[in-house]
């Protein structure tokens, strides 16, 4: 498993121009520029999030004002208290975590198997399957909601969290399979074969070769799945009736009534809701994407 194998297969063509200017110096300068550019973009991207979070700490009259308050004149936790004290906050969090982890776990396993099939095998019906998962993505969820409900209703799965997980799986699986396929395709078969020849069995070959190289894809797919499931509103709302079983997103909608929207608590609640996802991903990103892959490809 030398990097050479990987390099050869991954570079179809190499531009054959004569060596020009000192590449090294230019690269350093570009590094600074791209770092600054990235910081600037991040700042723009982050601004609405900042606005949400800072609003959560503002006393009421400052939430909307003619001259923007970039920071609250005094930090208040009232909005957070109001959010957390609202009925069904904790059950909402727990249900969302449950639904998200079940969806992610099942989706990853099922999608990975499907991705290997699509990437590594030629078989009758392959095109048909590809066509199917693409079409499934194209149908607007709003158009399917009633028949999905009726079907789950017949199966006794309405007002049940597993029913929600099942529905989510159908919406994330097509993408997950297709995405992972892209990653598996990029891992040269020769690598796996080399491992088999070295005396690994199939599982070992999978674990030592394929898995590490596909890990970034798994992480990206997991994040995609997790966030889709975490943010989904319509299916969760329609399928679940019992307030104790509702998810976080549905709970968030309760801040808007005919009396207006409780902006302060809503922003506080969303900040709280986004926090675990951000922290989890920041950790996952560092460990898996940079650490694990870099290590195993080179080692």
């Amino acid at each position: 498993m030398s990097t050479g194998t990987l390099a050869r297969t991954a570079t179809p063509t190499r531009p054959g121009k004569p060596p020009a200017a000192p590449a090294r110096r230019r690269r350093g300068g570009r590094g600074l520029a791209s770092n600054l550019a990235l910081l600037a973009i991040s700042a723009v991207m982050f601004f609405p999030i900042y606005w949400m979070a800072v609003t959560a700490f503002k006393p009421g009259p400052e939430i909307l004002s003619y001259t923007p308050h970039w920071l609250p004149s005094r930090f208040t936790l009232d909005n957070f208290t109001a959010a957390v004290d609202r009925p069904f906050f904790w059950s909402g969090v727990a249900n969302s975590l449950l639904v998200v982890s079940a969806t992610v776990l099942i989706a990853l396993v099922v999608a990975f198997l499907g991705a290997v099939a699509l990437a590594r095998f030629e078989f009758t019906g392959r095109q048909l399957f590809v066509a199917m998962i693409l079409v499934v993505q194209m149908v607007p969820a709003g158009a399917l909601i009633i028949p999905i409900y009726l079907m789950l209703n017949r199966a006794g799965q309405t007002d049940q969290l597993p029913g929600v997980v099942l529905a989510y799986l159908t919406f994330v699986l097509p993408f997950a399979i297709w995405m992972l396929r892209g990653f598996v395709v990029n891992v040269p078969v020769e690598l796996e074969e080399a491992a088999l020849i070295d005396g690994c069995n199939r599982l070992q070959a999978f674990r030592r070769v394929l898995f590490p190289l596909v890990a970034p894809g798994l992480v990206a797919t997991a994040v995609y799945t997790a966030i889709q499931a975490w943010n989904e509103f319509l299916l969760a709302y329609v399928l679940i009736s019992t307030p104790e079983k509702q998810t976080m997103t549905v709970w968030l909608a309760s801040f808007t009534t005919t009396r207006g929207t409780e902006y302060g608590p809503l922003m506080a609640a969303s900040t709280l809701a986004a926090l675990p996802v951000v922290i989890f991903f920041a950790l996952a990103q560092r460990r898996v994407v940079s650490g694990l892959t870099a290590g195993s490809v080179k080692g």
């Binding site: 709003g142 909601i145 009633i146 409900y149 009726l150 509103f233 319509l234 709302y237 329609v238 009736s241 019992t242 307030p243 549905v250 909608a253 309760s254 808007t256 009534t257 005919t258």
Partner: peptide, 14 residues
């Protein structure tokens, strides 16, 4: 069972 206003008619229809 407390409902939400958003999409409540969709839920009622189903």
């Amino acid at each position: 069972q407390t409902q939400q206003w958003e999409d409540h008619l969709t839920k009622l229809d189903t």
